[in-house]
Nucleic acid binder design. Structure first.
Length: 261
DNA sequence: ATGGTGGCACCGCCA
């Protein structure tokens, strides 16, 4: 049995957050860090400093927004980008690979913008495509980790004010139902597995609110989910709020899960 | 209180 540690982080620009990421990786001995919102085109991705720090890195991005990456201590295998269902491949939002024998899927789920928009419809459909993706490529009775910024808070305790926020694109019954249909394929929310019923655990704070950390105005929209056989082997899962104490923090923070494989 | 901030882009888009 060996420890397997996986982390997720919405960087909101990997170039601005590069030092924070490398500093964090230097003291947190993860096997893989999944990054979302790299906000960089592939030709401008900071490959060299990441490699020089000792990491394998795979990524797909685009101009201005979205973009995903995986930083791995060991070389990832079977790396694939985007959907292969005939629809929009969305390579800047989905990256999958096998790391130390564990299949990992890293997603940056579309935010949805406004409920009465085509973007929201796209988001809802995205979860359907996600379930299809899992059905076609994986088995629920085998180890698999799905991580990333899901842009969904699942329970009332996952947001700072559920009454006020209900209906928001990240806290909408239809979105929660769409994600639930993916969960039913065979996932366990690893953070919630270790912290059932505990409020006030957040991974994201809106830049546009005053002192959101001090006022505890957070959301738990970043997730580490695993299939049952792997969830049984999870030993811990935590959100690194301390990592926000940085000169230029992202609006999200790191979350880590540890397994014995 | 229908704003606010931040990042990337370019004269606005996205979150």
């Amino acid at each position: 049995m060996n420890p397997f540690k996986i982390a997720t982080f919405n960087a909101n620009s990997i170039r601005v957050r590069l030092k924070q990421i490398l500093d964090w990786l230097a003291h947190e001995k993860v096997d893989v860090l999944c990054v979302q919102e790299t906000k960089v085109q592939d030709k401008d991705f900071p490959v060299e400093p990441i490699r020089e720090a000792g990491w394998h890195v795979v990524f797909r991005g685009q101009k201005s927004y979205a973009g995903v990456a995986m930083l791995c201590r060991e070389k990832p295998e079977a790396v694939a980008y985007g959907f292969d269902d005939g629809g929009e491949p969305d390579v800047a939002r989905l990256i999958s690979a096998t790391v130390r024998g564990i299949p990992v899927v890293n997603t940056y789920v579309p935010q949805g913008r406004k409920v009465d928009s085509e973007h929201f419809e796209y988001k809802l459909a995205w979860f359907g495509r996600m379930r299809h993706f899992f059905e076609q490529n994986y088995r629920p009775d085998r180890p698999l980790v799905w991580v990333g910024d899901f842009n969904v808070a699942v329970e009332d305790i996952d947001v700072y004010d559920p009454q006020r926020l209900r209906g928001h694109v990240d806290f909408h019954p239809a979105v929660q139902a769409a994600l639930e249909k993916v969960r039913e394929w065979g996932f366990v929310d690893i953070f919630r597995h270790h912290h059932p019923g505990e409020p006030d655990h957040y991974t994201y704070w809106d830049y546009r609110t005053r002192n959101p950390i001090e006022r505890n105005r957070g959301w738990r929209v970043d997730h580490i989910w695993a299939t049952e056989s792997l969830a049984e082997r999870s030993t811990d899962c935590w959100i690194d709020v301390e990592a926000r104490k940085h000169e230029r923090p992202s609006d999200h923070t790191f979350m880590v899960a540890e397994f014995q494989i």
